[in-house]
């Protein structure tokens, strides 16, 4: 209903303004055809319902504070100036861990993808380490690196490393032998072969791996900040739990979702021009 009200109002305003746009241009059908509108439909309806249920006191606001209260909490965090500190330190940890994990995953993925010997030498070990639940490293990292930034960034890097390594090594293995042969005809050195054929050919798989890695980076920053942080979105979560404030927990969750989506969109946007050559079924 909200949608059709909005449509009517828009139509009226457009008519008053003397626009030539016919009603068909902004019909319900056109709105549903709009990607953004369609994508926002479910969350908007869910949030609206949640707010209404809370206002009607059909759910306990202590257990599940309504969106307006969560927004208020975020507003007060902005007002007292602490929000940026939390967001910034978490973002910094993810970016640093992502960079380190990606670097290690790229070097080892390219090397084992290129060399069968290196693959047989290293891959079993890496796969073995991969099957350790990464959270299990936490006590050891604290023992080794203390409780400040190093263990947190290391844990995130470990989380990012595996998907990047696996995606790239698999991608390089899948490169068409026929293209590699063209490079042989032109006497490419192993490094030239890696740089000019194997990596570009596995770029689609690599970029997917990077996005998976980034997603895991955001997952692991929560675990990292659980192990004794004094600042960060993960700290907000724990703090909300300790002080019994569901609104703070949900606020932190929302901020995680927002940051995760934004960084993924950034990575997607930055890497998209690199894949212009793909003749895909659907231009994603």
């Amino acid at each position: 209903m909200v949608t059709s009200d909005a449509t009517d109002r828009t139509t009226t305003r457009a008519d008053e303004g003397g626009w030539a746009a016919g009603p068909a241009a902004i019909s319900l059908g056109a709105l549903l055809g709009n990607r953004l509108v369609l994508g926002l439909l479910v969350p908007v309806v869910a949030l609206g319902g949640w707010e209404l249920l809370a206002a009607a006191e059909m759910i306990s606001t202590k257990v599940l504070p309504p969106p307006s209260e969560v927004l208020g909490t975020i507003g007060s965090l902005v007002a007292d100036g602490t929000l940026w500190g939390h967001v910034w330190i978490t973002l910094w940890r993810v970016v640093l861990g992502f960079a380190l994990g990606t670097a290690a995953g790229t070097v080892l993925g390219a090397a084992t993808g290129y060399s069968g010997t290196l693959f047989r030498l290293l891959d079993p070990t890496i796969q073995g380490l991969r099957s350790i639940p990464s959270i299990a490293w936490v006590p050891l990292f604290i023992l080794w690196f203390g409780i400040f930034e190093t263990p947190k960034v290391t844990l995130i890097a470990v989380g990012v490393f595996f998907p990047v390594y696996l995606g790239l090594a698999t991608g390089v293995h899948g490169v068409d032998r026929k293209l590699v042969e063209v490079a042989r005809i032109y006497r490419y050195t192993p490094l030239q072969l890696i740089g000019r054929v194997l990596l570009p050919a596995s770029l689609p798989a690599y970029i997917t791996a990077l996005r998976n890695g980034l997603g895991l980076g955001w997952m692991f920053v929560v675990a990292a900040e659980f192990m004794g942080a004094s600042q960060g979105l993960g700290y907000l979560l724990i703090d909300g739990q300790m002080t019994g404030r569901a609104d703070r927990i949900i606020a932190a969750i929302l901020l995680f979702a927002l940051m995760g989506k934004l960084t993924d969109a950034l990575l997607h946007g930055l890497t998209r021009p690199l894949l212009r050559w793909q003749d895909s079924f659907k231009k994603a």
Binding site: K178, V182, I185, V197, P200, A201, Q278, D279
Partner: peptide, 14 residues
């Protein structure tokens, strides 16, 4: 010695 393969074998990203 140059070689023209049965398929073009162009690098799709170039």
């Amino acid at each position: 010695v140059g070689l023209v393969f049965q398929e073009p074998r162009l690098m799709p990203w170039l």
